[in-house]
Design a protein around this nucleic acid. Structure first.
Lengths: 149, 149
DNA sequence: TATTGTTATACTCTATAACTATA
DNA sequence: TATAGTTATAGAGTATAACAATA
């Protein structure tokens, strides 16, 4: 691997922490640019994968169902997502993106992807592929692959 | 590089996003275990590097000075950190850890380090070093190295 | 009884604007 | 005037507990 000359004296744990901070900051900055909070942006992106129930969204966000109510109240007030009845179950609600919500989600998602790709622009193609594979390995070992997210 | 068989079909941008989510979640879980919010935990860890002024902390957290007041009010109420006068400047305050705060910060920091190292446990030593160097390269290219954090 | 979603309440974190005191 | 920090106010996000309606 082609080592950057000043790319040392940083252990992996600190690197992960700092990298996380950078990505979080980037996500927050792009959210703001799209007039979204990071949580609202994430909500829209999850819904890009198709309609979801409230409980399903709560589980996927790792929050209580009650938190989703407020989240969706705000998303709905802004015309980005909607709650609608589910034919087979009169308790349940189905959350879907509005057209505006889908446009916002797509635009946001594109910008985040660009920014993240720019982040790894400095790596050589071989290093980039190593890095990608390492992340995939880490993720596959720590996520049991349960859930709709 | 030794490729995991199921470590594919994940692009680098998604990987970064998911890795960030995993690290955030891990950080939040450990914070909770130590009866800290993630932000309070981060505050203590920054103070482990030595006393800081309020404005300095605000800049380092990327928040307004007013937000630090509330943050420190809560940290002080819990006996984790203290504000004290600065000899040369009667406007300024110096924030330091209490003994309890230092113990909490150290214990938290240790646990986070362990968890993060466990995260990359599955990588071979060579892959781990590649990964570490790649992160260092990314970080050195995106942080101008300004600031006390 | 269990599940879906909501309401009520309280707390943390954050921004903005206006303020005090000091430099 | 500029800087350090605070107060007041508002809003987002979250948890807990209690509730309603449906399964």
């Amino acid at each position: 691997m082609e080592m950057g000359v000043d790319a040392d004296q940083l252990d992996a744990a600190s690197g992960l922490l700092q990298l996380t901070t950078v990505v979080q900051g980037l996500y927050a900055r792009i959210s703001e640019r799209h007039e979204l909070t990071p949580v609202q942006a994430r909500l829209l992106c999850v819904l890009l994968g198709g309609p979801k129930g409230m409980a399903e969204l709560a589980q996927c966000f790792g929050v209580e169902r009650a938190a989703l109510t407020g989240l969706m109240d705000r998303a709905e007030k802004r015309g980005l997502a909607e709650r609608s009845a589910v034919p087979g179950d009169r308790r349940a609600l189905q959350v879907t993106l509005t057209d505006a919500g889908r446009r916002a989600a797509t635009a946001f998602h594109t910008d985040v992807g660009e920014a993240l790709n720019k982040l790894i622009d400095g790596l050589s193609p071989a290093d980039r592929e190593h890095f990608r594979a390492a992340m995939a390995g880490i993720l596959s070992s720590c996520r049991s692959g349960h859930g709709p997210c």
